[in-house]
């Protein structure tokens, strides 16, 4: 039934186009959204992905870049599986886009039964990559990474929190455990916001979080950064060493990318690619990247697809390492 209706509407559309071509009124009318755009966020409220999505929406609103609003829709359940399913089964792929993080790669790998092939998704924009930082509460008295290692080694009850097994922070924590021979207890939460709050409330002892998520508590002096997982020292924390300085060749970033639902029409995809390119080039976004310590990594849609391939392979290895 649905397919016949779709087919019918296509035929009607084609006929209308043909008619317009005949009458010579056809213009280079580009695709425009006809209803509010479902702006799915692959994380719960308050986390890094959520903050970015809301910021992107705000820029689009402020500059009136879309004729229909972007409506943020948090779907953080199941390490982002909820969001991926929502995109995969979207009833209107042309009005459904997703703000992703790396669970875009890991969740389909960890749960093949979901039947999600991310290579079928539509590349739209790579807005930047977000580095990770190791944090502890100031009351722990720990000032350096070495002190932290000592502390973790001295107890078998060292509790860290994160956004779930197989999520970005757990990959970094798994790396730390393996590379430095430590063991921690890992508690999963629904989003980076909840993790940051429980670190500030001393419910957990340390976290690996994106700077944006912990910024407020860093500014108030409640939490202390010990180590960054970027390739070079971060401008926001010039005194904090990188993991490379500690002799381990490792860096890990969270992708902040926008993708479209599978089956999105090329016209719609071109519309969103343009939209997010415009947003990317605004002063607001460029400033945001600076204040929130994001690194720029702009890519064309083709480059994005290649990047996805590379990331899927890398995460296969990282996850396999974790399982060992």
């Amino acid at each position: 039934m649905a397919t016949t209706t779709k087919l019918l509407s296509r035929i009607v559309g084609a006929a209308a186009l043909g008619f317009m071509a005949l009458t010579g009124t056809v213009q280079a009318q580009s695709w425009q959204p006809t209803k509010p755009i479902d702006f799915v966020i692959m994380a719960g409220p308050g986390g890094g992905a959520d903050q970015i999505a809301r910021f992107l929406q705000s820029v689009a609103e402020k500059k009136k870049l879309t004729s229909r609003p972007l409506v943020p829709n948090n779907k953080g359940g199941g390490s982002g599986a909820e969001a991926l399913i929502a995109l995969n089964t979207a009833s209107d792929p042309n009005h459904t886009i997703l703000v992703t993080l790396n669970s875009f790669f890991t969740t389909p790998l960890r749960q093949p039964n979901l039947g999600i092939d991310v290579m079928k998704f539509t590349p739209i924009a790579m807005m930047g990559v977000d580095p990770f930082v190791l944090w502890v509460h100031k009351d722990s008295g720990i000032k350096t990474f070495e002190e932290w290692l000592e502390k973790v080694k001295s107890t078998d009850d060292y509790v860290m929190g994160g956004t779930g097994k197989g999520q970005e922070d757990s990959i970094v924590i798994a790396f730390l455990q393996k590379a430095f021979g430590i063991k921690v207890k890992y508690i999963p939460y629904k989003g980076g916001g909840a993790v940051a709050k429980d670190l500030a409330g001393k419910q957990i002892m340390a976290t690996v979080n994106n700077p944006a998520e912990t910024k407020g508590f860093y500014a108030s002096g409640d939490v202390v950064p010990l180590l960054v997982f970027s390739d070079e020292r971060m401008p926001a924390f010039p005194d904090v060493p990188t993991v490379k300085e500690k002799g381990k060749d490792f860096s890990y970033y969270n992708q902040r990318a926008v993708v479209g639902a599978p089956g999105q029409s090329p016209e719609a995809a071109a519309y969103y690619q343009n939209l997010f390119k415009t947003i990317y080039n605004t002063e607001e976004w460029q400033n945001y990247m600076k204040t929130e310590s994001l690194s720029p990594l702009w890519m064309t849609p083709e480059q994005q697809k290649d990047y996805w391939k590379v990331q899927i392979e890398r995460h296969k290895e990282l996850l396999a390492d974790m399982a060992k």
Binding site: P45, G46, Q51, R54, F55, Q57, S58, E61, K62, P72, N74, A200, K215, G216, F217, A219, S220, D222
Partner: peptide, 20 residues
Amino acid sequence: PTTAILLGGMVIWGLTPGPR
């Protein structure tokens, strides 16, 4: 959930919610 959207609004208006 409603305050989650208000929070988004505050970010839009350029205010950073938090301890400060």
